[in-house]
Design a protein around this nucleic acid. Structure first.
Lengths: 202, 202
DNA sequence: GCAATTTCCGAACACCGTGTCCGGTATCGT
DNA sequence: ACGATACCGGACACGGTGTTCGGAAATTGC
């Protein structure tokens, strides 16, 4: 007994409708009725497949995750043997300006970003395997990579949209691999060792 | 005509009620009626002062921001001349485990974190003034500091709650000032120069 | 093709939270 | 004390959510 074609049709219709709507308006502003309208699906049918709008988003992103992992696997199996996810992402996000806007957007952005972060972290977690983490906690490293990537991406699109992908990538690498010059970080980190000592001693 | 005492009473009552509720349940799950209940304020009165729950949150955080800036200013004016915000934050967040939980929480967390991030960024922005940014875009630096701090903080509370504040701070400084060892970042950054070249050449 | 099964529709429904309005009352500033 | 202003609280319309159910339509397996 193969899977009923009707269910895959309705589900993909709903998936597609969601992304179409995300491209058009804030995620938070999207209503279930909107999705039903866009997908041409009955209300009861929707709730027969998903428990809520958020549930739909989750499962949509699971699809995205599987796709990313698949792509990466393909690249690894290929002869080229090379794979630079960050660079590739920077190169291609420009083609999805509307998605960018959705991710940057005021209110809906937060939940959406949260979900996307989770997916990226999942992919990285699978990718890193059990390799060395340079003495740093693996999970912290993963979260930091995701956060730094997203920070760079958002800054790029919001403050320097004209910048070339390669430049954004370079900034990203600098932040991630070399960090900040000490004097730049002073306002947050403290002035110098003397100060730190005086504080902890008091 | 001095400011009517009634308005400051109701407003602080609402501020306090909000934080009390945030400590008890998810931000998203908090309803206006909950706040009204907790603060003993009439519905119409609430809407006479704030336009929505989010508005209340915003203004609450503006208060927090002013407080942070004030504290910092005081520290700068003091003779000690030292100030290590990050370290101080790491030292004290342990006392607010409930707030931590609120910030970490599944759904409500996202909006809340967004707002808090904004406040931190504001404070830093004021703090940095026009100093050098080491050739890096100032806004990017600010965002990166905030993001790295929050990443470390969340990881700490979620994965190593027993860790000492000083240790968490040390990890934070390493991520921020030295970055990641290249081999650790490979899964996200690419293998080596040869690979990068082959990709960009193709 | 046909029958049995599964899915879909769509309309109706109760529920809850939001934001607004208004007359009466209490509290404030001077 | 008096005028102004803020508060109360109940009622209201509105919109979105999630559920239910009988009948129609599509799909599968044979």
């Amino acid at each position: 007994m193969a899977i009923d074609r009707r269910v895959v049709r309705t589900r993909t219709a709903l998936y597609d409708a969601l992304v179409a709507l995300i491209r058009a308006k804030d995620y938070e502003a999207i209503t279930v009725d909107d999705i039903l309208d866009e997908a041409n699906v009955g209300r009861s049918t929707f709730y027969a497949h998903f428990t809520s709008k958020d549930d739909l988003l989750q499962r949509s992103l699971e699809r995205l995750r599987d796709l990313l992992v698949g792509v990466r696997q393909g690249a690894l199996d290929g002869v080229e043997g090379g794979w630079d996810p960050a660079r590739a992402l920077f190169e291609h996000v420009g083609e999805y300006a509307d998605v960018q806007a959705a991710l940057a957007g005021g209110h809906g952005g937060a939940v959406l970003r949260e979900a996307v972060d989770k997916v990226l972290a999942d992919v990285l977690r699978q990718t890193m395997g059990a390799g060395p983490a340079g003495g740093l906690p693996r999970e912290l490293v993963i979260q930091h990579m995701v956060a730094t990537f997203n920070t760079t991406l958002r800054w790029w699109r919001e403050h320097r949209p004209a910048m070339a992908p390669a430049e954004a990538d370079a900034l990203f690498r600098q932040l991630l691999l070399r960090g900040l010059p000490a004097d730049v970080a002073t306002p947050f980190i403290g002035a110098d060792e003397r100060v730190v000592k005086s504080l902890s001693g008091a």
